[in-house]
Design a protein around this nucleic acid. Sequence first.
DNA 1: CCGCCTTTTAGGATTCATTCCTAATTTATT
DNA 2: AATAAATTAGGAATGAATCCTAAAAGGCGG
Lengths: 122, 122
Amino acid sequence: MTRQRQLIFDLIMAAPEHRTAEEIYDLARAEMPSLARGTVYRNLGLLVREGQIRKLEMPDAPARYDRERRPHPHLVCERCGKVEDLVMPDGLLRPFALELGEDITGYDLKLYHLCPVCRKKA
Amino acid sequence: MTRQRQLIFDLIMAAPEHRTAEEIYDLARAEMPSLARGTVYRNLGLLVREGQIRKLEMPDAPARYDRERRPHPHLVCERCGKVEDLVMPDGLLRPFALELGEDITGYDLKLYHLCPVCRKKA
DNA sequence: CCGCCTTTTAGGATTCATTCCTAATTTATT
DNA sequence: AATAAATTAGGAATGAATCCTAAAAGGCGG
């Protein structure tokens, strides 16, 4: 566990925001100006593979990273891309499990809306 | 409506596969060798904006295009990326509508599994 | 069918997120 | 502290997608 990996991990764990790699890079460089962009990407990938954090693919935008490791749906603003965590209601995917035979290994559920800030602008 | 746009549209409508832009480009060039890659991307974007087809963003892979315009969930093989359409059970998202106040503008639901071909290999 | 205006195309350059490369440094181990 | 293994900085490379421009095609009114 290197200083740079620790820093990246801490930054993600410190706040509920779903940041992009670039945002994490900028934040981290405020504390460690020599940090390389590639190091951020490599460690994010590593943390995801270890199951410590989650990667959130965003349509037509860079991926975001989520400190919450348990699977859950997301509410995404279709204008600005802001992301909020949602709670998965019990048994919501049951109809699919019944149809497909329980061999679902994961899911990705995004709901789109206009966040209050973007609604006001429009 | 140009020959190239018609060709791209026809190729998507002709088969249920969820192809990438590159696959569509290859198929189209078999019939029209002078077709430019940019023309494929531009027309796919155009067809999506018109609501004629749907764009499916795929994790760590190029986007795929779906001839079915009505919103619906997808079953995705986490190994090879093959995509199948699913039927959305009535009222599945109701719990969220109740919680969030009906202002959901769209959704994206992907279920991941291993397709039979990839299961056999593993 | 003809000219005129608008849209679209081919082809290549460009962008942007992300990955890869290598020598130098850091971390972990003995 | 010495050595082996892993990681870093920095920049080059990749790949999907977009953008640019001059040339070609569509589409219309006559």
